[in-house]
Amino acid sequence: MLAKDRGKSMSRLTKPLAPLAQRFAFLSLVFVAFGIMMVGKADIVVIERARGIVNDMVGPLVDLAGAPSRIVARTIDGVDTWNALVAENARLRAENEQMRQKDYAFETLRQENALLRRLLNFTPEAVVSFVSARVIADQGGSFVRNLLINAGSRQGVTRGQVVVSERGLVGRIVEVGAWTSRVLLTTDLNSRIPVVVESSRWRAVLAGDNSDEPRLLYLSDNARVAVGDRIVTSGHGGGFPPGMPVGIIASVTQGGAVRVRPHEEFQRLEFVRVVSFALDAARVIPGSEANEPLVESVEQPRAEPAPALAPAPGLSRR
């Protein structure tokens, strides 16, 4: 009441100035908004911190709010699986058989690869360690494509780390809070990933445009690509390890525009892995089967000339 009266007397005093002041205030707020947009573009530490803090606050809320939909989705999934159990079982058996054959071929290739690398004194690839995380928010829209996951700096996640699912590349960490971080999907407008066409080794850059199928840029005019060709990361620039599956070519137009369909359906993702691939052997996870041959090749002195065609010690042991 009192405040209202005070307001009235104030407005009587400043009546002629009020509209002008109000207009000035509006205008300055608009300028502030534009200013923030310019500052935001500069990518400064304060804003990065602010993003991390807001993510940490929003994360648990979204996680909680999303619980019912997750339960419903899982229940539907459960009922579906129950119905199709027999068919599913048969399919899985067949798939398992195929996998076993593939596994055999894979093992042979792996050993051959290890041998050849040893012969060439090949610089070892990155060694990986990873953190698994759950997707808690999914920011879609025509303006942005990213995910919020429930692992942050406390879990060892850092900016720039690569995020994958069991099907292939998902994206890259762009913001890190204490308990949450944001993943820029390969489909986002700001995503640029150096890739190669797996079979023909033509290089290109995979550029997101917020649609479901990112484009291939800078592909040579001489490159022959076809729908269905597999696209993998090239490892150029060091942001991503080479050979990571990204997607397949979905369409090639007359004008040469090539679009890639990612292996992963990002909106159905529930869990992801945040991978750190350090270029030093110091970060090997001890006892990790997959890392063993790489560690061995690190231990070999680099200056030593490549040995003649003789069975490598690692091979005879296996």
Binding site: V62, A65, D138, G140, G141, L148, N210, D212, F266
Partner: peptide, 19 residues
């Protein structure tokens, strides 16, 4: 804002999440 952030497991929907 929170509702808009919720993950929706429907293919294609996030591309057009309403404002």
């Amino acid at each position: 804002l929170l509702v808009g952030l919720l993950p929706v497991p429907i293919a294609g929907l996030p591309a057009i999440a309403p404002l």
